Amino acid sequence: MKFDEFEVGMVIHHPLVPVTREEMLEFARQYDPQWFHVDEERAEHGHWNGLIGSGWLTCSKAMRMAVDSALHDSESFASPGLERLRWLLPVRPGDSIRLEATVASKRVSSSRSDLGIVRWFWNVYNQHDELVVELEATSMFDLK
């Protein structure tokens, strides 16, 4: 989507994508090797009663869904960061997740007329329509 196509209040959807045990383990071993992400036997007896995926894997998959559904052909070039990020429920092997991104605001920078700014709320749901992650992101667009 181009910057001009974003509208305040619009909701961008990406359908369910699977989260496999193998990708959870591979991601965690490389980037977040905490025992509840990588040690299946120990995780069975832990707080979560089983292996859970890294929240960073969930965020990475959400980013991919945002690119696939909105940013892939846009003028987006950067983000100054997130305002908030909450992991509400764990994602488990065999779950599927989907993205709903709601555009909260859209504007052209007051100091740079070639810079578009979109603030949007991303909600990631599992296959049971339970909210697992919520975050507020800002994306910047090159309007040259």
Rank of each mutant, 00 (worst) to 15 (best):
W48F: 13
M140Q: 12
A70W: 02
S139C: 04
D114E: 08
R98Y: 05
D4V: 10
W122Q: 07
H128G: 09
S105I: 06
W120T: 07
G50C: 07
V11W: 04
H14E: 01
T58I: 13
P15T: 03
S79V: 07
P15E: 11
V67C: 02
A66F: 15
W87C: 10
E130G: 14
A137V: 09
G94Y: 14
M24I: 13
V103F: 00
P90R: 04
E134Y: 12
G55L: 02
I12E: 05
S109C: 04
G46E: 01
A62M: 14
I12K: 00
S110W: 03
H128E: 15
D95S: 13
G81A: 09
G9C: 11
A66S: 14
S74F: 12
E40G: 11
Q127H: 12
H47R: 09
H14D: 01
H45L: 13
G9N: 10
F36A: 05
V19G: 03
H47N: 12
R112V: 07
I117C: 03
S113T: 09
N49E: 15
S74P: 11
A70V: 06
E26S: 12
L71N: 02
L57H: 09
D4F: 12
L89Q: 11
D32G: 07
L82A: 14
R64C: 01
E100W: 00
L57R: 05
D73P: 07
M140A: 07
V38Q: 05
M63A: 10
L143I: 06
G50H: 04
A62I: 04
D95I: 08
E22T: 02
M1Y: 07
E134V: 12
W120K: 10
F141W: 01
R107W: 02
M24K: 03
D114K: 15
R98D: 01
A104T: 10
H128Y: 12
H128W: 10
S109F: 03
W56N: 11
D114F: 06
E83Y: 08
W48N: 11
G50S: 15
H13D: 15
K2L: 14
H13C: 14
D32I: 13
F36K: 06
W122M: 13
R84C: 12
T138R: 13
H37A: 00
F27A: 03
E22W: 00
L115W: 05
E41F: 05
F27R: 08
P93K: 05
P80T: 06
M65F: 05
I117L: 05
E100C: 07
W122K: 09
G94M: 11
G9F: 07
F27K: 00
N123P: 08
G94C: 14
T138M: 13
S60M: 02
M24S: 10
R86Q: 11
F77R: 08
G46K: 06
S69G: 03
F36C: 04
K61H: 06
S69F: 11
P33L: 05
W35L: 09
G116H: 00
F36H: 11
S79R: 09
V133Y: 02
L57K: 02
A70P: 05
G9L: 06
